[in-house]
């Protein structure tokens, strides 16, 4: 993580390339390496394909044996049924609002806190950072009952801010942004800016944040994905169908699963589609970001 910077972020495969050019006589990749990797790719993608198959066939086809392995023509019928059974469009919108706010919020708040821990001097800094690190190891799920009581006393039950506000605190994100900031912002630049009369706030927004924007972007993406897919907490605090996120809407569809087998599957597929579309564009950066934030050596 110490060598994490814009350079490694944009060229995750760089070591591979370097090795390829300097080591022409290296051993060949065996066929079974590809066979095993393709098997893994198949295992990763098949369930999504199967989701699509069942989401496009009527119940009679979906339950026939041998199973149909090609998409049927029932997709729009089932999709229509999804939208009429639950306010699905609304739930997708709710998910976008919640995940978007959490993604952006985490990127900004974690960059700010990471900046303070990496570059500012203040009393109690080491102790407070230790607290941040320790909070990463405590699963919040075990205290859902008091969490619900607090949200309830704030009058936030069945609102989206009950999901957004608690989701903004991300200890891992602070840890991650601190790493990025301590490696990419030098003390000399900080001093130079101070001598020129810049305030801490100006240094953060004009110098620090632009430097670590790639890292903050990936952090925001991970926050978005996690929030989009969250289930337990929304399941507890959301009560009315208009407030449902996409995941809770899927659960509501599943309750009518016995009527039409493809219905819950169609909902699942439609709720996964936005993330798949996002992944096509930013998947490469997510992979690089996860590997960047990982352990090295």
């Amino acid at each position: 993580m110490t060598d994490a910077g814009p350079h490694t972020t944009t060229h995750p495969e760089q070591p591979v390339r370097r090795a390829r050019t300097t080591r022409r006589s290296g051993e060949r990749v065996r066929w079974w390496t590809y066979a095993l990797l393709l098997l893994a790719v198949g295992a990763c993608l098949f369930p999504l394909y199967w989701m699509f198959i069942v989401a496009t066939t009527d119940t009679a086809t979906a339950t026939q044996l041998p199973p149909e392995i090609l998409p049927g023509g029932n997709f729009f019928h089932l999709a229509g049924l999804v939208f009429s059974t639950v306010p699905f469009l609304r739930s997708i919108l709710n998910s976008l609002i919640v995940a978007g706010a959490i993604g952006v919020g985490q990127a900004v708040l974690c960059s700010m806190a990471g900046f303070a821990f990496a570059k500012l001097t203040f009393r109690g800094r080491n102790v407070l950072f230790l607290v941040v690190v320790l909070t990463m190891t405590v699963p919040t799920q075990l205290s859902v009952i008091p969490q619900y009581m607090i949200v309830s006393s704030l009058g936030w039950v069945d609102t989206l801010q009950a999901l957004i506000v608690p989701g903004l605190a991300n200890a891992f994100g602070i840890f991650w942004m601190r790493q990025h900031l301590s490696s990419s912002l030098s003390d000399e630049i900080m001093q130079a800016a101070r001598i020129d009369g810049a305030t801490t706030w100006q240094i953060f927004w004009r110098i620090a944040f632009p430097l670590v924007r790639p890292g903050a972007f990936v952090l925001g993406l991970l926050g978005f994905v996690t929030a989009w897919n969250d289930f337990l907490w929304p399941f507890i605090v959301l009560k009315s169908p208009e407030m449902y996120t996409a995941q809770i809407a899927i659960k509501a569809l599943q309750n009518s699963f016995s009527i039409d087998l493809g219905l819950a599957m169609s909902g699942s597929f439609l709720a996964t589609l936005p993330l798949l579309a996002l992944f096509v564009f930013v998947g490469r950066r997510m992979v690089a970001g996860i590997m960047d934030g990982a352990f090295k050596g």
């Binding site: 790719v41 699942s268 709720a271």
Partner: peptide, 21 residues
């Protein structure tokens, strides 16, 4: 890159959708 990206697809799929399929 293709192998790496494919292996991250399950991670972006929600647990709810995964459980149903």
């Amino acid at each position: 890159v293709f192998f790496r990206m494919s292996m991250l697809v399950p991670y972006i799929t929600s647990v709810a959708a995964t459980a149903i399929v």
